[in-house]
Nucleic acid binder design. Structure first.
Lengths: 191, 191
DNA sequence: CTCGCTTACCTAGAGGTATTAAGTATTTGC
DNA sequence: GCAAATACTTAATACCTCTAGGTAAGCGAG
């Protein structure tokens, strides 16, 4: 009996493909073992448990997403950078819905802060450079941007915009206009 | 053997309590049956299947959330209304994390459009009345508001803001300032 | 009041997933 | 070419979902 050559990396990669095909919630240890032609318990030599698998998948997705955003951001500033970040973010979610869903799970504090999550925060701060915001406004703006991007993509994916004729792309574009406007003219507290 | 008096309504209510206690993903038919002191199959007289139960729970949560928001919105306009809506929304998510998670699942198009989902859209439009936006700007603004609220609450619940000293309440307050500012001065397309 | 219908609930069981324990086979390093 | 490490196996437990078929409790009509 030849070995299947399973490693944690190949498992995570396969889990990512599976997630995009059947949805994150249907990524199971069993389905993954089936895909590799081995029995379920075989996978426990490589992963701790199902939760560990999901966290590895989340880390993969966050890293891929950060790579995309970083590439899109290169050489841009101001609204250009804002649109590039947002576009890369939204496109990734559309192309890889399962991975995007995985990226939303709460990963344990240590690995989250250490790993890819901090890259996202740093890149969002990079966008803001051109807008010249000082702390704590910068942190507030990072949170606002992240919330809007994630919220929009999240609602769009859940079908929240599909029952209305207005094009989701158009609304997205206007949302970016609005964010740019608010960043250029960041309001003082309690207007 | 006395009857337990299970009905679809009591099941849904219990499922909501269970969701807040153990998380939406841990709301199972078995756990619910246990809570009512009956066997698992007994519940299938009242609900179609596990998915049906989740959808009833989602509908309950959406209705409760809409009720809260409607109450908060009464007699307010402009930024006052904006803050009231946002506060009710965020508070509900904090008090009832399981129900809030349930409210995010994709329910089938018919029941979604017919039921509570449309109430949310209508109330968000009510906020905008004072800002006097015309279509399609109004739809774009509705989507922006919803995205921001949902995104912020979602990231906050996932612990996205916990690794930074800046208070999540303060950032939230500034986000509302920013949204108010952008609504009062809605930018034309492609600034 | 009791007969019979409806409905709530049960037992039995099949099928899927997660996980541990303990064993066999395969590869690798010396 | 052997020993140690590791990949993978079967076996078994536990939980969850759901169907089929049966029992019993409550209710309306005679």
């Amino acid at each position: 009996m030849a070995r299947a050559g399973v490693t944690a990396e190949r498992l995570t990669q396969a889990a990512a493909e599976l997630a995009d095909e059947v949805g994150f919630e249907n990524v199971t240890v069993s389905a993954l073992a089936r895909r590799f032609g081995v029995t379920d318990p075989s996978l426990y030599s490589h992963i701790k448990n199902a939760q560990d698998l999901r966290m590895r998948l989340a880390a993969l997705a966050l890293t891929e997403l950060a790579d995309r955003v970083a590439a899109a951001l290169a050489g841009r500033a101001g609204k250009d950078a804002l649109a590039a970040f947002a576009g890369a973010y939204r496109d990734y979610a559309k192309e890889h819905p399962g991975r995007y869903a995985a990226a939303q799970i709460e990963l344990d504090p240590e690995s989250a802060a250490a790993g890819p999550a901090r890259r996202h925060a740093e890149m969002t701060r990079a966008i803001l450079r051109a807008y010249e915001l000082q702390e704590p406004d910068q942190t507030d703006a990072v949170r606002l941007l992240h919330s809007t991007f994630h919220g929009y993509v999240s609602l769009e994916r859940a079908g929240g915009f599909s029952h209305h004729p207005r094009d989701a792309d158009a609304s997205w574009s206007r949302a970016l206009d609005a964010l740019d406007s608010v960043l250029r003219n960041w309001p003082p507290a309690d207007v």
